[in-house]
């Protein structure tokens, strides 16, 4: 029991502590590719610490929902964090929800932020909320199909079980359907974490932003929570990619040595994924909003092909 509680707390701490670091590392790698020096990798920590000390300015039009939304959204993301294997497959609360539950917890987080975006009565908020929900609708079918492809391969939607099974497969895990599903989910991850070509996390030009437009009215401590929540969500999406498709090194049982190795392996994996994401971001331009259906149909096709190739390989 105590070991379980310790594991839960360790996982939470790992998530909260690593999330800003991942952001910082991605920014640094992006700067490297763009031949800039860029801020240090710890900059996101300083940003959040700074925001937590700032006073905030709140619009006179808002209701209680504006104040509740960051909290609800943060809590939903954190809860999803307990369902996703980070360094151990035997999650103490892994039975509370599966991959589909994780997707819907993210949806809950998004829903409240998008609602709050409308609360201040500014056009930017409405635009951001509308686009965010639009992108989410585009993502959803592809996401569900790739979940099906993964679940089909492993036989379950339980994330700990998926990690365990795939890591037991060793190099057999490199099957066509696994690779196709990975590509599909990678495209979805771009959309879910709000990166180029879907959204530009660095922009503050009103007409191009999605996530930034939604949270335009937040400031001070509330903004710190919103930003931290977004970073945690990004880390969790990366963890999903890492530990569903490359779960190697993840701890199967509870021993200090295994956990330390798993944490190191996990860190290496998300940094590599972050580097790939930074490369994608640097080498593409942001797409027009109305071209996004094309991008996500590519993802949809990949996940559908993953399903079909599974049927062909395994013989139905």
């Amino acid at each position: 029991m105590i070991a379980k509680i310790a594991l839960v707390i360790l996982q939470l701490l790992a998530i909260i502590a690593l999330a800003p670091l991942l952001s910082g590392i991605i920014k640094k790698i992006k700067a490297f590719f763009q031949i800039r020096k860029g801020p240090g990798i710890f900059q996101p920590y300083y940003d959040i610490a700074k925001l937590l000390q700032k006073d905030s300015v709140v619009s006179q039009n808002v209701s209680w929902l504006f104040h509740a939304a960051p909290i609800v959204s943060f809590v939903a993301v954190l809860t999803a964090g307990l369902l996703i294997p980070i360094f151990i497959t035997e999650l103490p609360f892994g039975f509370a929800g599966d991959l589909i539950a994780v997707v819907y917890l993210f949806a809950l987080a998004r829903f409240f932020i998008a609602l709050a975006a409308l609360d201040a009565g500014s056009s930017f908020g409405g635009m951001g909320g509308s686009r965010e929900m639009f992108v989410a609708s585009l993502v959803e079918p592809a996401l569900m199909l790739s979940i099906f492809a993964i679940a089909l391969n492993v036989g379950s939607t339980n994330l700990g079980y998926i990690s365990q099974t795939v890591s037991a497969m060793g190099f057999d895990a490199f099957s066509p359907y696994q690779i196709l599903a990975f590509v599909a989910l990678f495209i979805i991850a771009i959309a879910e974490t709000g990166r180029i070509p879907v959204d530009n996390p660095a922009t503050h030009l009103e007409l191009t932003m999605i996530h930034e437009a939604m949270i335009l009215e937040y400031s001070g401590k509330q903004l710190a929570i919103v930003e931290l929540g977004a970073m945690i969500k990004q880390l969790l999406v990366f963890s999903l990619l890492a530990n569903i498709f490359f779960p190697w090194g993840i701890a199967q049982g509870v021993s200090a040595a295994a956990v330390i190795i798993a944490l190191l392996a996990y860190f290496a994996k998300i940094v590599i994924l972050g580097a790939v994401m930074a490369m994608v971001e640097t080498s593409t331009a942001k797409w027009r909003l109305f071209r996004l259906p094309e991008l996500l149909s590519i993802s949809l096709m990949f996940s559908f092909l993953a399903l079909v190739s599974f049927i062909i390989v395994k013989g139905g």
Binding site: Q60, G220, K221
Partner: peptide, 13 residues
């Protein structure tokens, strides 16, 4: 957070 909060108009450029 409540103590350090100022109420102002919505941002409109």
């Amino acid at each position: 957070a409540r103590k350090s909060r100022a109420i102002y108009e919505t941002w409109g450029c």
